[in-house]
Design a protein around this nucleic acid. Structure first.
Lengths: 155, 155
DNA sequence: AAAATAATGGTCAAGATTAGTCAGATGATG
DNA sequence: CATCATCTGACTAATCTTGACCATTATTTT
């Protein structure tokens, strides 16, 4: 309890707002005013304490009527498989290897066939083909990793 | 999902007018008067919230007896609608417009929430962001069209 | 008819209102 | 005293609101 920074206090305050709800909506400037800090500090708190690793999703809108919405999500249990897959993918992957991973996910019943089909078309050479194969493989890796990360939780 | 801006409120109002009908007809100045805003704000609401990406077609007529007609359509059910959607996508699309399409597909029960979530991450700025925004938008268009075609030939 | 007038909706750009980013300053800790 | 976390503020980006000016269609007048 000692040495609580203002960020810690803001974090606790936001978590208190949740109550039994699964999501809250705040106005950045209001929170900043409330604690007498600059608005960007709220971004800092969110970025360091309301991450997906911590089980939170964040959405926001700028302009008139803007807001920041923080949602608490349920993390799935079997993250070990996903971790090793992400590891294996690295930052570049060929079509055939990506397809193999999708098939594995399907066999492991992590995804349905339809989900797998949709993922396949996004990862296919036909969809991603750019002039540069290296670029294509990197892109494929990013999309695939995004898929896997999305499978980590349910909202 | 509170209605924070007057545009949000007008959007909700218009959607309420629909009821079970598939189309509504409004008089721009009437709506503007009703909410005490300038008439062009109605255009703004329509342009940002009743697009083909959102599953709406809009027609209007100027002059005496003029009107604005908003029609709710199913994106995949009708070949013409799908064509205008693909045309609207073209070879480049921004994240927000792509997201609107996915949400519409979900609302129409063409895809499940999980399928939609997976498609969203593949189309997200975070996943596709390269140094070049132009390239990013083109890539997004290709992936999205691949998704649509996949869904189309399935049904 | 043709022309003028009235009654609509459309476009666009400027200004207002939010939130986001990033680099540097400051503080805390081993 | 080195390093990492925190804090700040200038600059950027997205979204909404408004109003001046434009375009189209219907109606009335000549």
């Amino acid at each position: 309890m000692e040495n609580r920074s203002i960020s810690d206090i803001i974090e606790a305050y936001l978590k208190e707002i949740f109550g039994d709800d699964t999501q809250i909506e705040i106005r950045r400037s209001e929170i900043a005013d409330h604690f007498n800090v600059v608005p960007s500090q709220i971004n800092y708190v969110i970025k360091t304490r309301f991450t997906i690793q911590n089980g939170y999703l964040v959405q926001s809108k700028r302009g008139g009527g803007g807001y920041i919405r923080i949602e608490r999500v349920n993390l799935l249990a079997d993250v070990d498989v996903l971790n090793s897959l992400v590891q294996a993918i690295g930052d570049s992957i060929r079509e055939r290897d990506a397809f193999a991973i999708i098939e594995t996910l399907y066999n492991e019943k992590v995804i349905s066939q339809r989900e797998g089909d949709l993922m396949l078309v996004a990862l296919s050479k036909q969809t991603l083909a750019v002039d540069d194969t290296n670029m294509e493989n990197k892109l494929r890796a990013r999309i695939l990793v995004s898929f896997l990360n999305r499978l980590r939780y349910e909202s």
